[in-house]
Amino acid sequence: MIGTIATILAGCLILAGSAFAAIAAFGILRLPDLYTRMHAASKAGSVGSGMALLALALVSDTGPEALRAIAAIAFFLLTAPLSAHLLAKAAYAVGYRMWPGSVLDEMPAVIVTTARAETPARAQTVQSRSGEAAAPRPNQDD
């Protein structure tokens, strides 16, 4: 009886997980901006694979397999936000612009440099581009 319930629960979990993964991929394809795409990928994508691994832990026969799947879930939930945050920070610091329809830019004047002279600071790139850019960033004037 317990096995039956676990099997049905595992079926529901892999359905939900793969649906999450498909929705995340659809969001990656359809959202307009790197940062919004990242919001789709790093949340829904990690939840999707985590649900599939949880279903594997439910239907596995022995204890160590289930423990390994749960360890994989924990590891994945730990690393996915880290990598997404690092990538977003790097892209924003280097100067990849947000979507023009974005409402709020909470770090409009941040300047992050790693190499002393090579990396262009964001403010400098915005200033140097402001002459030719058709649409300046919405919150740049604040």
Partner: peptide, 15 residues
């Protein structure tokens, strides 16, 4: 970002 997402989809495939 797409490569990162590809990794997580591959983990779901493995499960």
């Amino acid at each position: 970002l797409g490569l990162d997402m590809l990794t997580s989809v591959a983990i779901g495939f493995i499960a």
